[in-house]
Design a protein around this nucleic acid. Structure first.
Ligand SMILES: [Zn+2]
Ligand SMILES: [Zn+2]
Ligand SMILES: [Zn+2]
Ligand SMILES: [Zn+2]
Lengths: 141, 141
DNA sequence: CTTGACCTTGGAGTCGACTCCAAGGTCTAC
DNA sequence: GTAGACCTTGGAGTCGACTCCAAGGTCAAG
């Protein structure tokens, strides 16, 4: 009777019941109490934790990293240092991805500009293929 | 005897035999000739096409988009307009992703800076949780 | 007592571009 | 003739964070 069921807990943090069960499977939520009939029953501490997980996700952390932080926390230790570490790690990954995508975008911009101003496939060689997609010559291994 | 086998074709464009077979499955390569014993045999046109596919990929296009362009090409039509369209589509997606990641990175930077200068979990409320990961209040649906 | 809304479980499907596998066939060289 | 390097096929596995499923159990209202 007392205690939130999966979809009630989910609603308190804006996630689906499925997602709550998924996090539970991954061990992100505190050890679950169960009703006689087997229903998961959560308390306010679980609400706080679920929101904390979502907050960590919004900061770009992966569930695997969050799981580690939760383990530290449940072990009674302070997760501060580990959190900064995890965030720095993710920052580096995200930065690399931004760099990759930015270079790609610039290439695309140039190609789109060239494609819009150029004649259709002019000058044609062999096959009709837009300049920007012409096969590049050798790839030496 | 004449004609390149999968790994030979792959080598000419810097991809694995598996990748060549994969592209073949997706219909990206020209209709395959086969030797008596069932081996795929490719010619120079296939080399050009495989390089063209890789070029298109380097421009950020997806294999599904490239497949469409190839269909147009094989239908004897000019793929120029479609190519610009495909590139514009991808540019928009990539741009959105860059925006998302950039915002995330900025948030992370701020959080990392706050985490490095702050006292460990100070001030603590209820549980020891770094400031940047404290559960945010209500999520109203 | 039945309807309907919830809950349980394990497992599969999604997206993209591969990569790797096993079981079997082929080809060249020694 | 036999080793070894290639080829064939269909299918499964990878990464991440879900989402959806079927088959069955539970519970409150009418
Ligand atoms: Zn042309
Ligand atoms: Zn054209
Ligand atoms: Zn603390
Ligand atoms: Zn701390």
């Amino acid at each position: 009777m007392d205690g939130l069921k999966v979809s009630q807990l989910g609603a308190r943090a804006g996630v689906s019941a499925d997602t709550v069960r998924y996090y539970d499977r991954l061990g992100l939520l505190p050890a679950t109490e169960r009703s006689e009939s087997g229903y998961r029953l959560y308390d306010e501490r679980a609400v706080a934790r679920l929101r904390q997980i979502r907050q960590a996700q919004a900061m770009g952390l992966r569930l695997s990293q969050i799981a580690e932080l939760m383990r530290t926390l449940d072990g009674g230790e302070c997760p501060c240092e580990e959190t900064v570490e995890a965030m720095s790690e993710r920052r580096a990954e995200i930065d690399a991805e931004i760099a990759r995508l930015t270079a790609l975008r610039d290439q695309l911009d140039a190609a789109i500009a060239a494609g819009e101003t150029g004649e259709c496939c002019d000058p044609c060689e062999d096959e009709c293929v837009p300049e920007v997609l012409r096969p590049r010559k050798e790839v030496n291994p």
